[in-house]
Amino acid sequence: MAIEVTPAVLPHLVVDDAAAAIDFYVKAFGATELGRVPGPGGKLIHAALTINGSTVMLNDDFPEFNDGKSTTPKALGGTPVTIHLTVTDVESKFEQAVEAGAEVVMPLEDQFWGDRYGMVRDPFGHQWSLGQPVREVSPEEIAAAMQNQQ
């Protein structure tokens, strides 16, 4: 029997404490845990969640399998990646993340591209943006707004 595969792009996060990260994502973003695979010493070698209808994978940091280097955002001094959530009630979803322990990076504001948008950093160093489209904006309006930003 062949296994059906659905092509996808999924974020795969490395964290210092995967079990605590799962708990945080449940509280902050309403995640649903799909499963976890414990490894040596209780560290998780794999876990999967759904957040906002999409799958997110994560695992504990295993420097021993990465030339002795940690690959968590904290060990790297930050992250160049932002994971974006488009939501229908950005005010409550943003507040939920902050109440769960996320740090505000950029407060919620109406943006020139038509979204109410803000950014948070989770306790594990990963950055998340939350946005809700609030008005239609033409490409010309965006271009004009960009000119005014400079």
Rank of each mutant, 00 (worst) to 15 (best):
F62M: 13
I51P: 00
G30E: 05
T72E: 03
S70A: 10
F24M: 07
H84M: 14
T88S: 14
N59K: 15
L58K: 04
V87G: 01
S54D: 08
A48I: 01
V26T: 09
F24Y: 12
V37S: 08
A20G: 11
F29V: 00
A31L: 05
R36H: 09
G68I: 03
D60H: 11
P80W: 06
M57C: 02
K74E: 09
D23W: 05
H84P: 00
G78T: 03
D60N: 15
H84I: 10
G39N: 11
P40K: 13
A20H: 10
T79G: 01
E91L: 13
G42F: 02
T71I: 12
V81Y: 03
K74S: 01
T50F: 00
S54P: 00
S70I: 05
A21C: 14
G35H: 10
I83R: 06
A48N: 09
L34T: 09
T71L: 10
P73F: 05
K93T: 14
K43R: 15
A31Q: 06
A97Q: 04
T79Y: 06
R36F: 02
M57A: 04
A20Y: 08
V37E: 11
F62G: 04
I51K: 00
F62W: 14
K43P: 01
K93W: 03
G77E: 05
V26K: 14
I51G: 00
Q96K: 12
P40V: 11
K69F: 08
L58H: 04
H84G: 11
Y25T: 10
T72C: 03
T82W: 03
H46L: 04
G78P: 05
D23R: 15
L76T: 02
G77H: 07
I51T: 00
G53A: 10
S92V: 13
H46G: 04
I83Y: 10
D23L: 10
D23V: 12
F29K: 02
D23G: 10
K93R: 15
F94M: 09
A47Q: 11
F29N: 01
S54K: 09
E91M: 11
N66Q: 12
A48F: 02
H46S: 07
K93E: 13
E33R: 13
A28F: 04
A75C: 07
T88G: 09
S92T: 15
T79E: 04
T32L: 05
L44K: 15
L76F: 00
H46E: 07
G30K: 08
T82A: 02
I45C: 06
F65R: 11
P63F: 12
K43E: 06
E64G: 13
A21G: 12
F94A: 08
K69R: 11
Q96W: 01
N66P: 00
A48K: 09
G77A: 09
G78K: 05
A20S: 14
P80E: 12
T79H: 05
G53Y: 12
A20P: 04
G68K: 03
G39M: 11
L85P: 00
V90M: 12
F24W: 07
K69Q: 14
G42A: 02
N52I: 01
G53Q: 13
E64F: 08
F62R: 09
A97M: 02
D60R: 13
G78N: 04
E64V: 09
E33F: 03
P80D: 13
V56M: 06
V81M: 10
E33L: 08
